[in-house]
Amino acid sequence: KAKLLVLLYAFVATDADTICIGYHANNSTDTVDTILEKNVAVTHSVNLLEDSHNGKLCKLKGIAPLQLGKCNITGWLLGNPECDSLLPARSWSYIVETPNSENGACYPGDLIDYEELREQLSSVSSLERFEIFPKESSWPNHTFNGVTVSCSHRGKSSFYRNLLWLTKKGDSYPKLTNSYVNNKGKEVLVLWGVHHPSSSDEQQSLYSNGNAYVSVASSNYNRRFTPEIAARPKVRDQHGRMNYYWTLLEPGDTIIFEATGNLIAPWYAFALSRGFESGIITSNASMHECNTKCQTPQGAINSNLPFQNIHPVTIGECPKYVRSTKLRMVTGLRNIPSIQYRGLFGAIAGFIEGGWTGMIDGWYGYHHQNEQGSGYAADQKSTQNAINGITNKVNSVIEKMNTQFTAVGKEFNNLEKRMENLNKKVDDGFLDIWTYNAELLVLLENERTLDFHDLNVKNLYEKVKSQLKNNAKEIGNGCFEFYHKCDNECMESVRNGTYDYPKYSEESKLNR
């Protein structure tokens, strides 16, 4: 008799109507990190870190770059004969040098303040090359056809396309004075040089004057150069050297050249137009028929994500570079809930034993079982409120962090190594801060989002509990077992918050 009662009780308990509160689960393989956990499985997430590029040089917003090819900045601007293909260059979106560009200054020497000139050019998007001192009329008392084997072109001695090597005419090199007034309405880049012979005999042979000088002056520039005559090792078949100089001439300003020898005179100059998204990159990537809004030396990035880990040097509207390998923000729920887990921000989770793959029309909802059958029903209101809140948060985070910009490298010469090392340390410090901030932001927001979901499920549970009161009992896994019969209409009233407690209280009292 006792065995019969136990079996009867078990049958009745199993047959009781139930309603459970749960949440969506799926077959997603997404994982995120939080402050407290690593690799948390979630139903949905968004990636904030771009880690792919196309490996190509592309047009930037429809404008092609200027590819210097086998030449570098120095060779292009001075007019190395091997860089003749660059003479027609007028406009570009950015400038590309190759790491091993070999054609710079063909006659050995240095372009002074080269690093600063590169910085200036990094904001130039177009130029006009014009004859600042016409070759045939500007130097009537001097020979202007100086050439050298060091600047050979097609097997013949030649010289820079933008400079003139002035030497004596006959047996004399009379003092020369020439000036140019900038009437271009924009900055003009003027380049010139000073020749330093290897011996007094060479000085006399070329310029006749043993104590020659070169003077260059404008409103913002004033220097006097004296040739340094000295024996030097042979470089590119030359014992002599040429140093090259430049200045930016403001609109309306005048530049005056005065010399008694050794002047490498300007022939062509450049009127410059600035462009905020221009820059110089060093890259071996090849040019393709493609378009982008962000270019790196590795390749083009076409992404609206706020961060990238491809390269710190970028041109155009680019994500911020960070050292992170993963920045994924959760938008959905835990896919593998932890039992009795309390989140960092106070939300209680884990009283549900598992997510439901059968509930596909919402994030949170119900599963019921009664004599009429069983089924899932999503709670659309709480789901939609959660979707709206999380979507707004993700968009806000992306908008705040998605300050796209150009980031170019800084140039230092060989004598500025300590400054370069200090600059690298400062840049590394800023990069570490950006990386830390980005990672911390994602970790915190992921923790908040998961706790937010847990709290929403808990609130749904409490909503049902407050309606049923003692007409049902909690069975410990997020479910309630009714003390009365609850048909589909009754189940719907529980879900929509209109459950009639008094209607079922007498039946429940008897069954309790």
Score class of each variant (00 low, 15 high):
43 T>C: 02
47 N>S: 14
244 Y>D: 04
244 Y>R: 10
270 F>Q: 03
201 D>L: 08
258 E>H: 14
9 Y>E: 00
267 W>L: 13
227 P>L: 10
52 S>R: 11
75 G>C: 06
141 N>Q: 12
184 K>A: 12
175 K>T: 14
48 L>Y: 09
74 T>K: 10
60 L>W: 02
64 A>Y: 07
234 K>Y: 04
185 G>V: 01
182 N>R: 02
235 V>M: 13
122 S>E: 13
33 D>F: 11
183 N>A: 07
187 E>G: 04
166 L>V: 15
89 A>H: 12
129 R>A: 05
151 C>H: 04
150 S>P: 01
15 D>G: 02
90 R>M: 10
264 I>N: 01
149 V>C: 04
2 A>M: 14
6 V>A: 10
75 G>M: 10
60 L>S: 01
34 T>H: 08
13 A>R: 04
247 T>P: 00
64 A>I: 04
41 A>V: 15
55 G>F: 06
181 V>P: 02
188 V>W: 03
228 E>V: 11
90 R>Y: 13
100 N>A: 10
202 E>N: 03
112 I>W: 00
237 D>T: 15
263 L>E: 03
85 S>K: 07
271 A>Q: 09
42 V>K: 11
120 Q>T: 12
60 L>I: 15
186 K>L: 13
18 T>L: 15
248 L>S: 04
210 G>L: 13
207 Y>R: 02
232 R>P: 02
130 F>V: 12
43 T>L: 11
42 V>A: 14
198 S>M: 10
255 I>Y: 09
12 V>L: 04
231 A>M: 14
219 S>F: 14
134 P>N: 13
72 N>Y: 02
234 K>L: 15
220 N>Y: 11
231 A>N: 08
200 S>F: 06
251 P>H: 13
38 K>W: 04
108 P>S: 06
173 Y>K: 03
46 V>D: 01
122 S>Q: 12
53 H>Q: 12
41 A>Q: 05
129 R>H: 09
160 Y>E: 11
117 L>A: 06
159 F>E: 03
189 L>E: 09
18 T>H: 10
101 S>N: 05
234 K>H: 02
82 E>N: 14
113 D>W: 10
48 L>E: 10
191 L>H: 03
66 L>N: 10
30 D>I: 04
278 S>I: 02
91 S>W: 04
238 Q>D: 00
185 G>M: 09
249 L>T: 06
169 K>H: 12
157 S>F: 03
132 I>C: 09
243 N>I: 10
161 R>Q: 10
147 V>C: 00
148 T>W: 03
52 S>P: 00
79 G>V: 07
246 W>R: 00
49 L>H: 04
187 E>V: 12
111 L>T: 13
98 T>C: 02
281 I>N: 06
191 L>T: 06
94 Y>C: 03
167 T>K: 04
50 E>V: 15
57 L>N: 12
30 D>G: 07
165 W>V: 03
151 C>P: 06
259 A>P: 01
28 S>P: 00
163 L>E: 03
64 A>F: 10
